[in-house]
């Protein structure tokens, strides 16, 4: 029972927090662009509106199924990420599980989007997958270095261990840099927003969604963001000894990505991949050499 309570708390908490934060980030962007911007709870309105809309368009079974899979997969991933000192399944916060489980959400969404038979969606998905190929490899490697050094692949433990040796941000600055860039790509922030590219391919994967579909995918997107930023906070900023510290770190990282994104133009998709396989990869390997060479302490 306690477990179910925890799960509900996690999901609801993540939802409220992240949606509020993303609403706030809209305000930040607006300020950068010298606009007023919406109120920070605007996103709650939006989601609510979408869910309660009377009409929504379905493009067949797989269109629906993919949405369920995306939502379910992302929610499931959420439960494996430690938030500050808390985690739903202690001892199961396995990094590799998290990044692969996150993929099931992406796969569901991709399937659903392509299932809509809209060419824009198809293009968007192909770009998203290509881009994923770009950023995930260096990102995973940054974590492999940590895993090797600390002999554990539990995200919670990797977070906890930083209270002894200092944040990985300082210990492994190159890794942190790479991971941050990868994070931007994961979140689909500029300059890595080719899959969505609103002006170019009409929001790509999301082009055919409306009503509750779009609502669910928005929530799914917020959850995924929560997982991804949370991973960065846990892995490089030492997680949080209390929930509050964790959330503060979280907010800072998230807003940083938002701010940088607001200042960037868009890469082409193969440029993204080429970029990730050039600098971040090299940096990660340099980091690995340094870690092997001088050790962690």
């Amino acid at each position: 029972m306690a477990l179910i309570g925890k799960i509900v708390l996690f999901i609801v908490g993540a939802f409220v927090f992240q949606v509020a934060l993303s609403g706030f980030s809209r305000k930040v962007i607006a300020r950068i662009q010298k606009r007023r911007g919406p109120v920070f709870w605007q996103n709650f309105y939006d989601i609510g509106k979408l869910f309660f809309k009377k009409t929504s368009i379905s493009h067949g079974f797989i269109f629906d199924f993919g949405v369920w899979m995306a939502f379910g997969g992302t929610v499931a991933t959420l439960l494996f990420v430690p938030v500050g000192p808390y985690s739903v399944f202690p001892g199961q916060t396995n990094f590799i599980v998290i990044i692969y489980l996150l993929a099931i959400g992406s796969l569901g969404m991709a399937m659903s989007a392509v299932g809509s038979a809209n060419p824009f969606a198809s293009i968007g998905i192909s770009r998203a997958l290509t881009q994923m190929f770009g950023y995930d490899v260096p990102f995973a490697l940054t974590v492999v270095i940590m895993i090797y050094v600390h002999r554990t692949s539990q995200v919670a433990k990797l977070a906890a261990v930083q209270s002894d040796i200092g944040w990985h941000l300082w210990v492994m600055p190159l890794s942190a840099l790479v991971a941050f860039i990868a994070l931007m790509a994961m979140l689909g922030k500029k300059p890595f927003d080719t899959p969505i590219a609103p002006a170019e391919i009409a929001s790509g994967p999301l082009v055919e969604y409306s009503g509750k579909y779009l609502g669910m995918l928005m929530v799914q997107h917020e959850f995924a963001t929560f997982v991804e930023v949370g991973l960065f906070v846990n892995l490089f900023l030492g997680g949080g000894s209390t929930l509050l510290i964790y959330l503060v770190k979280y907010i800072i990282v998230y807003l940083l990505t938002v701010i940088i994104s607001a200042l960037m133009a868009r890469f082409r998709v193969e440029q993204t991949v080429a970029f990730f396989w050039k600098w971040p990869l090299v940096l990660v390997f340099i980091q690995a050499l340094i870690i092997i060479g001088i050790g962690i302490r």
Binding site: I7, I11, F51, F52, K53, K54, T55, S56, I57, S58, H59, G60, D64, V67, W68, M69, A70, F71, G72, G73, T74, V75, A76, L79, S116, A117, N118, P119, F120, A202, V207, E208, G211, K212, Y213, G215, M216
Partner: peptide, 26 residues
């Protein structure tokens, strides 16, 4: 569990309209 949750949420809200394959935004 996550999948079921998604299903429940999905079913809670109003029924979607089915459209033909080629009726897409272009």
């Amino acid at each position: 569990g996550g999948f079921l949750l998604a299903l429940v949420i999905f079913l809670l809200f109003s029924k979607p309209t089915k459209v033909e394959q080629h009726e897409v935004y272009t």
